[in-house]
Amino acid sequence: MGGFLNSTIARKFAMALSGLFLVLFLAQHFSINFISVFSKDVFNEVSHFMGTNFFVQALLQPILIFGVIFHFVMGFILEAKNRGARDIKYVKFAGNENSSWVSRNMIYSGLVILAFLGLHFYDFWFPEMIHKYIESHPEDAARYYDELVAKFQSPVRTILYVVSFVFLALHLYHGFSSSFQSVGWRNKYAKGLRGFTKAYAIIIPLGFIFIALFHYINNL
């Protein structure tokens, strides 16, 4: 596998697969979070299931964390090689004439998402792990909604989340459709698929923004 990952194409293939996996995870994360807009009880019930189910906690969660770390590490490896491939920069480079800003700046949108993940883990994941596995509090199935809502009482945090989701949209706008090219999937359905990926890249982050603003405004 190490030898396979030495090649340019294989690295991009691995990057695409990990990206597609994270895209799937985003849809699942959004679906659960969106429930909080409609029903406190159902949100608590689903969150309790996700937070206590052995399969989710012991198998899916480590795979997800590996997927996230792999995607970022591989992104940095690819970026380092790309920067080294042009040792002397152009005095004038008209990138906008032949490509989109988002496609050329995936590393920067990715870095914003990485910073956001730091905040997100600080807000939710670390407290959750400490609550369950370090302090070993008795499980309270009704706590999840209140914990979520409490975080969006801060306008600064809400703004940080909204800005991060805008960058997530930019990252997905190029990354989702690009991943199919990297795995070699390009046929008569490619145009339709590209439309779907662009819509997904806008709708899902917009949905996350709506959830953050909904809870912030609801608590004013």
Binding site: T8, I9, K12, N82, R86, N98, S99, R104, H174, S182
Partner: peptide
């Protein structure tokens, strides 16, 4: 051919599409 391309030190494809346009 891919092995040789990598050995020459070219970068990775980011699918920006600039190559096709130019």
């Amino acid at each position: 051919m891919v092995r040789q391309m990598d050995e020459e030190g070219f970068g990775n494809c980011s699918n920006t599409g600039a190559c096709e346009i130019e």
